[in-house]
Amino acid sequence: MVGIGLLVFVWVAVIAFVLGCVLKGLHYALTPMHLRWDLYPVAHEPRRDHGGSYLEEKDWWTHKRRTSLAAEVGVMGEEIVLLKGVWQHNRSLWWGSLPFHWGLYLLVVTTAGLVVQGLGWSPPVLTSVLPWVAGVGGFLLLLGSAVLLIERSSSPKLRPYTTPLDRLNLLLLLAFGAASMAVVLAGGFGGAGAAVTSILRFRAPEVTFLLGAQMALGALFVLYMPYTRMAHFFAKYFTYHKVRWDDRPYVAGGPFSSRLEAALEYGMDWSAPHIQSGHSWRDVVTHIPQQDEKGGQ
């Protein structure tokens, strides 16, 4: 019974996760083109060291625009791997945040490794390394969650902005980290591989209480994660690449032209006196109200 319950729950969690990520991704990706709102330094700019842009060039539109994907990857890498921004500007939080994130990364790696094994590719090195990855990951998540929980409950700058739900979330992750570590320490990691293999084959896994609890906690986290602000793990792609670093200049007749033309046809219904509600953007913004008409004030 427990095995069937776990099988169903894990698959529900995976489906909810994928669905949540896809829906949220579409939610951001399908918004119309927005006005430019770049913020410097922009990582792919050759002038990034001093925060410069191509607008520093005379007749910038006559020059070939140079960008560096490697620099973007480098900056994102530093952020993801080292949490560089937090290190630079919020050091006290970094000590909890880094192990917390690394704990999650390592447990994701563990899961991926178990899935790979479950699909039939199982080199010896993977088998020998995975328990270590899982154990260290569990420990780091436990440590990070505990430190963050204490920080968020005691720090005058964090406590007022932390909801009871935030604390519950950290508690869940703390328990997940502890359970992950305990599974390894209790020598039960071998059962995890078999359980994942079973789940991949839609068969009820046979698990110990500890492993079942660990898997259930992980599945619960995976289930709701995309519907919370923890979705920043992929929303960051949009905040950085589609807003902050989006310095692509408009080219007449280029990809922005048609999107702008479409946006200008949207009808607006703002109600303030200076706006002619019910008309298109094009009509409203090309009409300047005079003193004696609505909006002239």
Partner: peptide, 12 residues
């Protein structure tokens, strides 16, 4: 329709 200008950065 009303806020195409900044909807994406706002939501994010």
């Amino acid at each position: 329709e009303n806020n195409w200008t900044f909807l994406q950065p706002l939501l994010l």
